[in-house]
Measured scan of single mutants.
Amino acid sequence: MAAGGDHGSPDSYRSPLASRYASPEMCFVFSDRYKFRTWRQLWLWLAEAEQTLGLPITDEQIQEMKSNLENIDFKMAAEEEKRLRHDVMAHVHTFGHCCPKAAGIIHLGATSCYVGDNTDLIILRNALDLLLPKLARVISRLADFAKERASLPTLGFTHFQPAQLTTVGKRCCLWIQDLCMDLQNLKRVRDDLRFRGVKGTTGTQASFLQLFEGDDHKVEQLDKMVTEKAGFKRAFIITGQTYTRKVDIEVLSVLASLGASVHKICTDIRLLANLKEMEEPFEKQQIGSSAMPYKRNPMRSERCCSLARHLMTLVMDPLQTASVQWFERTLDDSANRRICLAEAFLTADTILNTLQNISEGLVVYPKVIERRIRQELPFMATENIIMAMVKAGGSRQDCHEKIRVLSQQAASVVKQEGGDNDLIERIQVDAYFSPIHSQLDHLLDPSSFTGRASQQVQRFLEEEVYPLLKPYESVMKVKAELCL
């Protein structure tokens, strides 16, 4: 049975990233139509530049190519590739079939990587351009969430054990800070992308030097003109047959890092959902379990974690691919890159769409948070109580021993009897502590235990987050809708 299948058929496997999760716009960027249309555009740009620099290419040939950029006979191309065992030459023939007058000058002087690699770089750039505003929107939604809850005390956790208090907004800023680093890295790697350009079979530009009869300047002009037509500021000066596969490492490393950030955020949300302090959106008709109707599973956060793990592992592909590119190139890269580049971007696209949807509907339960604080705060307040007693004339050592005994009794009630923490009640009825009984409410005010959390939130948002989001103001209103 021949390899390949009808990918629109229910009898043929289709990647869930495309069929179930990723956005239509990201799927289109990695589609065959987008790819092969870009090949034709690159052939047109090459012909236009070659004509401008004096090669015998007519206006009629150029116009014929322009008129057929979208006229792609995919069936013919597939048949040609089956016959020739070469995808680029299959599309040269297919393009030439609908451009008979231009057929002889299509791909003039070029090698397969002229269309293959340059198209990949265009796709990487455009895919990054799709991700950047999506990530900015996630940051914006979380920034709104953090600002609104900047002063809401909550129990902090280290080692997932109760620690000092923080605020809900401050905790959210930990998430935002990681995503801001990801946004900066995505922008950097996007701006650092260079075009492969017009380089020939081993990167020496020998074929173009021959076409222009040894004119170095025209060869350099050709490279520059096509690079500018493709919208790049610069091209690699040095290439082998391909652009260095280190570029793929750079791009997928940034995406993998984004995956790590999203995994951490969504894990926190899942843990908070278990504590009943916070939940992701839950639709009115949504079913959490087929057997347990009360369940409210954090399905979206779980999906993000599941896909983020996949995204983090994909960076190993370009690392290994770059390491086995012998001399000017081997074909070890080809099949692998067809999979890992598309999957990385479709996965990143999915987790950003999902995280935006989550961040637009996060639900906080202040009463649950308050109750958990009441359970733990008495123990945390013991040092403040000791200091207040010393100020009232008591002995630190005597007070410490009193607190120690009462704390152990209260802990026994919590752990052995399943009761509430009654340390404060014990202190309130103990005559030894009568000098500070009137101060206990103040000493137990949760806001006095959150330090500068709310001020940190305000400063972080104003100095770091809002300036970073400013270039994306025009796209901030787009909502994230999930079908599944």
Rank of each mutant, 00 (worst) to 15 (best):
D216R: 05
V457S: 05
P153K: 00
S261A: 11
L352D: 08
T239F: 03
I358T: 15
S334A: 04
R14Q: 15
T52C: 12
S289H: 02
Q177W: 08
G288V: 05
A163P: 01
T154M: 10
L469N: 08
R374A: 07
L271G: 05
Q164K: 00
A322W: 14
A348W: 05
A342V: 15
K391M: 09
Q439L: 08
M26Q: 03
R190N: 09
L222F: 06
S19E: 15
T166N: 09
L152E: 08
E473N: 15
I369G: 06
L132V: 13
A344R: 03
R234T: 12
D6V: 09
I122R: 01
G361P: 10
A110V: 04
L53C: 15
R426M: 08
Q439Y: 14
Q184Y: 11
T94C: 15
G451E: 02
L461T: 02
I269H: 01
D441K: 11
A2C: 15
S12P: 10
I403N: 07
L142S: 05
C399H: 07
R459Y: 13
L222W: 02
H91T: 00
V92L: 06
R190V: 09
D248M: 00
F232M: 14
A77G: 14
T158N: 03
A206P: 02
N185Y: 09
R37T: 10
R188C: 06
L461Y: 03
L124G: 04
I62G: 02
I105V: 12
L174V: 13
L186F: 12
Q286F: 06
M316Q: 12
S257G: 09
E148I: 11
F145W: 10
C340P: 00
A49F: 00
Q356C: 15
N384E: 03
Y466T: 14
N185W: 08
F282T: 09
Q161R: 02
L258H: 15
F433A: 05
S207F: 05
V189L: 08
G214S: 09
D144V: 15
E473A: 09
L131Y: 09
A163I: 00
A291S: 05
S9E: 14
R396D: 01
D333A: 06
L258I: 06
H263A: 10
P162Q: 11
V475T: 12
G156F: 00
V413W: 14
D445E: 12
H91S: 12
L84D: 13
D248C: 06
R190G: 10
E360T: 01
L132I: 14
H86L: 02
D216I: 06
M65D: 00
Q205V: 06
V324A: 11
D445N: 11
D144Y: 14
P133L: 15
N353H: 04
Q408M: 06
R337N: 03
D268S: 09
Q51I: 07
T158V: 01
L179N: 02
Q416W: 11
R309K: 05
R459I: 11
P133R: 15
Y294V: 04
A230F: 05
D332I: 03
L209D: 15
